[in-house]
Design a protein around this nucleic acid. Sequence first.
DNA 1: CGCAATATTGACCACTCTCAATGAGGGTGG
DNA 2: CCACCCTCATTGAGAGTGGTCAATATTGCG
Lengths: 259, 259
Amino acid sequence: MLCCKYNLIEHIKITCHNCNLNEICIPMGLDEKVVKKLDNIIKRSRPLHRGDYLFRKGDKLRSLFVIKTGSVKTTFIQENGHERVVGFYLSSEMVGLDAIQKNEYICSAKVLETSAICEIPFWNLEELTANVPALQHQMYRLMSREINYEMNSILMIGKKTAEEKLAAFLLNLSARFKNRGLSATDFYLSMSRYDISNYLGLAIETVSRLFTRFQEEGLLQVERRHVKLLNVQHLEIIVSSTHSFKFNSTVFPSQPPQS
Amino acid sequence: MLCCKYNLIEHIKITCHNCNLNEICIPMGLDEKVVKKLDNIIKRSRPLHRGDYLFRKGDKLRSLFVIKTGSVKTTFIQENGHERVVGFYLSSEMVGLDAIQKNEYICSAKVLETSAICEIPFWNLEELTANVPALQHQMYRLMSREINYEMNSILMIGKKTAEEKLAAFLLNLSARFKNRGLSATDFYLSMSRYDISNYLGLAIETVSRLFTRFQEEGLLQVERRHVKLLNVQHLEIIVSSTHSFKFNSTVFPSQPPQS
DNA sequence: CGCAATATTGACCACTCTCAATGAGGGTGG
DNA sequence: CCACCCTCATTGAGAGTGGTCAATATTGCG
């Protein structure tokens, strides 16, 4: 039970805008009593494995899920039966918020790697937040965070060139790993090339080719799912250079810098 | 004051999954007393006009905004100074939920046409929802709805071909107009071609050409911003046909059906 | 009436998709 | 321990979509 309790504090801590990861804090006036109540609500399960589902599209809303370690992808099954990836979730992130509106899950959530995930029965949580204003505020902030994540996805996926999309994707992951105290430049991708391409609206071959090209250009090193970013600055420039800028830019006379 | 009060009821009504637009209902046990309290919180302003801002990126969170009539676009200013459209909002929809996480607006909201918009000071609303569990639930559902909208955007923008993107965009608008009791097949676009292309991640010329082509194929009639959908079914097929399906499909031997 | 903003159309070419074949790991069974 | 299979990833060649550039409507507004 302890680990989940700790996770929740961790979770709250991360979502507090006044606290960074290096500070121990229980923000928003959440005292031990409230944390204990939360602790009583939360269900801990044994580790889930690659391919396990947290929930499927159409299931009735039961719980929200907080990822303690590991990662999850959410997918939406389209009318034609094809699956589209709509999001990737890492530790401390909450999955299932889409289900509240219609009282049923709109997408499916599939575990990408062995993960520890806490389950919070929504109706219990809602009852608790109704009694603890500070917790209600946390909940609003969490949902707002989800809205911001998705806005970020929209920006990423709406980029014009495949190059920009993949660079943005890698930097997004990088930043999220960094926030978790992990390396911002050396990490494993828990999702397949297929998932990445599907998410970004590209062909899988394009993603593969781009990885190769980025490597040739010295921007990163990649071996299967292990990625090392070597030139973050240049990746950032790729992302921020709107397509119309790219060819007028004086930043790169011709060749991107080799490391 | 009355109009705003009515709008809120309208608003709540729309967000209630058990009620459709033709029923008068005050769901979730929200009695007149609560509605009155809401009414006291809500600020009504005189009509806003094309180009007015509800808020700008970086402004401190003051209020959430509910569109009574008209429409709004939200834009995100990227690192390179370029503006990207991240969403379009129609009547009964709420804008500003992205600001709760960091206590400041992440994107800017710009009015697209003369609009009536209600302002709800967030802190007052939060206080009220803390005291009225049914209203708290409404708030959760509203935020969840926003998450679903954005998920929809991700699916739309992530489609592979420009054709699929624009068809999905038009059908999305159509469905939302229909929900509001307006024509699902005959409507005005309050956003420019530029906004549409920017939102969908396409070149403005591509959008323009597609409108022309759709018209030539008898799928719709378009004159500047006035759109009449003539063959919704075929538009739906375009959307649902993943690119990989499109060329094997026996649905269209060669030419799309002419109306 | 003319300027500015918005939208359409054409020509050309680059990017990215599709199709196809090959390569690399991980797991299972002989 | 190796052969085999299956999945995942890479690479190549050709074709098509969609982007860029440029010119031309069309509309709105002062």
